[in-house]
Simulated scan of single mutants.
Amino acid sequence: MSDTRFDILAMGDAMVDVIAPASEEFLAEHKLPRGSMQLLSPEAADKLYDAMGVAEEHSGGSAANTMAGVAAMGGKVAFIGQVADDQFGRIFRHDLHALGVHFDTPPIPGPPPTGRCLILVTPDGQRTMNTAPGASHELVASQLDPQLIRDSAVLYLEGYLFGPEKPRAAMMEAIDIAHGANRKVAFTLSESVCIAERRDPFIDMIQGGGVDLLFCNGEEARVLTGAPSAEAAMAQLGDHVPLMVVTDGPNGAMAATSGETVRIDAAPVDKVVDTTGAGDLFAAGFLFAHCRGAGLEKSLQTGAIAAAEVISHYGARPEADLKELISV
């Protein structure tokens, strides 16, 4: 949009990912939910961190990863998220700025510390996430910059952050500001384990017209709606969400709007190394193409290419030059 400063502004957890390989035995020993996500206290996170093997540290957070991907494609993006004034907080800020993402949310003194996500990756590339949200769940509406929201064509919200009362209130305020400025609101459900305790607020927001574009995978769509299939869930939500995008891992993805449904195959990848960030980068590719006026099929294909790149290596941020891989 010509009257905006940014293509996309995201709100989400401001996290540092700590990624290490792990055996199935390690997951069983520590009672970790394989392939899923659990919340940890800072103390429990410290204990698991001490038990992990050699790790890589990357600035992360679902929506922040998506903005990093869009920036790598040449998009103009910004991020709102809460960090503490500590080492991880400074790492997070530095990394976003280095990637070209506008980020100026003031840090809080702490405690709690900046959030961490301890990610264990098994030999098949599956990731098990153990999240200590820390300061990220201290985001409040007073930290919002209304003009930044008005200056962005799309407001992108992360489901992980929608549970706690304070950041949820901030998100609802941001939705009102965005829609008041005739901007679009996109939302990602983030993780099926988050949905059960947040289902009613999610449904209320969606049925209230808060979401213009909904991202989820098939399991999340079924859990949210109780429908027997992703297709049935899309039909059920179609009256409330103008555009819905559902991913299905190696089976590809589909998008539906105004009675039109488009399906694509997954992009090829030589070897799946780490599925961390696959959904985040899919959203990045889709949003980047969509903001440039691409149709559903092209937007889905761009998302699939970005997702294929990120699962070919450790970490949830792209390593290859995405500008060379996509054509939008």
Rank of each mutant, 00 (worst) to 15 (best):
residue 62 S to Y: 04
residue 22 A to V: 04
residue 245 V to P: 00
residue 91 I to L: 15
residue 142 S to V: 03
residue 43 E to W: 03
residue 89 G to N: 10
residue 253 A to N: 05
residue 102 H to Q: 13
residue 81 G to P: 09
residue 231 E to T: 03
residue 79 F to Y: 13
residue 247 T to K: 10
residue 55 A to G: 06
residue 23 S to C: 12
residue 166 K to C: 01
residue 48 L to E: 09
residue 161 L to T: 12
residue 75 G to A: 14
residue 277 G to Q: 04
residue 54 V to I: 07
residue 121 V to H: 00
residue 164 P to D: 03
residue 39 L to G: 05
residue 48 L to M: 08
residue 16 V to H: 14
residue 194 C to H: 12
residue 94 H to Q: 15
residue 295 G to C: 09
residue 34 R to P: 02
residue 259 G to V: 06
residue 22 A to L: 00
residue 7 D to A: 14
residue 118 L to I: 15
residue 253 A to M: 04
residue 178 A to I: 02
residue 307 A to Y: 15
residue 163 G to W: 04
residue 272 V to F: 04
residue 263 R to P: 01
residue 200 D to R: 05
residue 327 S to V: 12
residue 301 Q to P: 01
residue 197 E to V: 13
residue 219 E to V: 12
residue 308 A to G: 14
residue 179 H to T: 12
residue 274 D to V: 05
residue 109 P to Q: 13
residue 54 V to P: 06
residue 134 G to V: 10
residue 98 A to F: 12
residue 35 G to R: 02
residue 289 A to G: 01
residue 58 H to N: 10
residue 180 G to N: 07
residue 268 P to V: 15
residue 46 D to C: 03
residue 55 A to V: 02
residue 309 E to W: 05
residue 48 L to I: 01
residue 76 K to E: 14
residue 35 G to C: 03
residue 216 C to Q: 04
residue 38 Q to G: 15
residue 293 G to P: 11
residue 269 V to T: 15
residue 306 A to M: 14
residue 22 A to C: 07
residue 310 V to D: 01
residue 71 A to P: 14
residue 233 A to R: 06
residue 166 K to A: 08
residue 142 S to Q: 01
residue 259 G to M: 08
residue 15 M to K: 06
residue 213 L to P: 00
residue 276 T to V: 07
residue 232 A to V: 03
residue 42 P to L: 05
residue 122 T to M: 00
residue 38 Q to R: 14
residue 199 R to T: 01
residue 281 L to Q: 15
residue 191 E to P: 00
residue 269 V to K: 11
residue 223 V to N: 00
residue 31 K to T: 14
residue 218 G to F: 00
residue 108 I to K: 07
residue 21 P to I: 14
residue 2 S to V: 11
residue 251 N to T: 10
residue 119 I to F: 09
residue 135 A to T: 10
residue 256 A to F: 03
residue 121 V to G: 00
residue 297 E to M: 15
residue 273 V to C: 04
residue 106 P to I: 05
residue 321 D to T: 13
residue 14 A to N: 02
residue 135 A to W: 08
residue 316 A to K: 02
residue 263 R to N: 07
residue 82 Q to N: 03
residue 115 G to Y: 11
residue 170 A to H: 10
residue 40 L to A: 09
residue 106 P to F: 06
residue 52 M to K: 04
residue 131 T to P: 04
residue 15 M to Y: 08
residue 149 I to D: 05
residue 8 I to M: 06
residue 46 D to F: 02
residue 66 T to P: 14
residue 91 I to W: 15
residue 89 G to S: 11
residue 257 T to E: 08
residue 249 G to E: 02
residue 20 A to Y: 12
residue 53 G to P: 01
residue 49 Y to F: 13
residue 122 T to A: 05
residue 242 P to C: 08
residue 279 G to K: 08
residue 241 V to F: 01
residue 33 P to R: 05
residue 151 D to N: 10
residue 232 A to P: 00
residue 267 A to D: 09
residue 138 E to I: 01
residue 312 S to A: 10
residue 56 E to N: 10
residue 42 P to K: 07
